[in-house]
Amino acid sequence: MKLGVFTVLFQQKPLEEALDYIAAQGLQAVEIGTGAYPGNAHCNPDVLLADESKLKAFKHAVESRGLTISALSCHANPLHPQKAIAQEAHDTIIKTVDLAQKLEVPVVNTFSGCPGDSDDAKYPNWPVAPWPPDFQEILDWQWANKVIPYWTETGKYASDRSVKFGLELHGGFSVHTPATLLRLREAAGDVIGANLDPSHMWWQGIDPVQAIQILGRAGAIHHFHAKDTSIDPINVNRYGLTDMQSYSNMLDRAWQFRTVGYGHDIKVWADIISALRLVGYDYVVSIEHEDGLMSVEEGFTKAVQNLQQVLIKEPLGEMWWV
């Protein structure tokens, strides 16, 4: 496995300065934002697709520092019921796929999106209970009319260009659990896989090790984020796991994102890394920093230090004792 980082946390630095800093920390890979929620501070597809010299310079900037690009990321909602929002998200995803093909990057990370409850809706509707029956009817309509058709077509576009999608399992979107990811993968094909982030499993009450087992047995893990979550044992009883308070209200929230090792101990992270190896995932572990208690630099460096202790780096050899 290789250790990488989602470079959006260094968006205030110029690309080459950010890459120098990342390489100096001993990392081997970068995941780079291309627009939508992550922004495109380091990688604007419109610019790179229009100018071959700039594309080559971008690629050289990464490779000359001994780094590889694990994924291009454009997390967005291409199923948004407001057509202008959905179209902008879709355009960004398509351009990112085109750029990934040119850069020979195998994975594009994004969200599945979430539709509304009808063609006349203004806002996404995320059903989370089967009763009253209205919610199940909405869910069935969304999958049959929006989720499956969109990702079947867009998945084929990516597959034709040797690019896979890593859909991040995230609350608020149609694909948010191992089961929903596998449901879409069965309908739209193997081009659909997970960008699995343990932090989003924990706050939904899902054990990331079991999520890895479920998805890994199906070959459905295309990328992996390293981010932690801590759950407050008192606040969770007041607000529940679907706490709608601002992330900035950290003292009162039921849960919050933490850097690796500050929500769950190193043994848990060793189990996660071992589970990834067990199911055959030997790609990049990409650090994502969204810890409100630490600066970017401190949260990042602590994640690097903690992951270096448990990352399995060498190729699997023969079992000499068998």
Rank of each mutant, 00 (worst) to 15 (best):
G155T: 09
P208G: 08
K313P: 02
M1N: 04
G26V: 00
M244N: 12
F111H: 00
I148L: 13
L67H: 02
L169K: 13
P315R: 02
A211Q: 14
D20T: 10
G155I: 11
R258W: 00
E104L: 01
P124A: 08
G171M: 12
E290A: 08
L55D: 03
A41Q: 14
D119V: 03
Q87S: 11
L181I: 02
G66Q: 04
D119M: 07
I287T: 07
Y239K: 14
E153N: 02
D51H: 08
A211W: 14
K95T: 03
S70P: 00
V47E: 13
V47L: 10
V97E: 11
P178L: 03
A121N: 07
I85G: 04
H75C: 10
L241R: 04
D98E: 11
E104V: 07
A303Q: 07
N249Y: 01
F173Q: 09
S174G: 10
V175T: 05
K56T: 11
A57P: 06
K156T: 00
V304D: 13
V97F: 12
G171W: 14
C74Y: 06
G155P: 12
H42E: 05
R258I: 08
V108R: 00
R185Q: 15
T154H: 07
E186D: 15
K267T: 15
T242L: 06
T92V: 07
R258H: 06
W203P: 05
F165W: 03
F300H: 02
A23K: 02
D197A: 03
T177H: 06
P124L: 12
K59I: 04
Y281A: 05
I221K: 06
A254V: 04
G66P: 01
D190V: 00
H200E: 01
Q204R: 14
H60Q: 10
M294A: 08
S174W: 05
A211L: 12
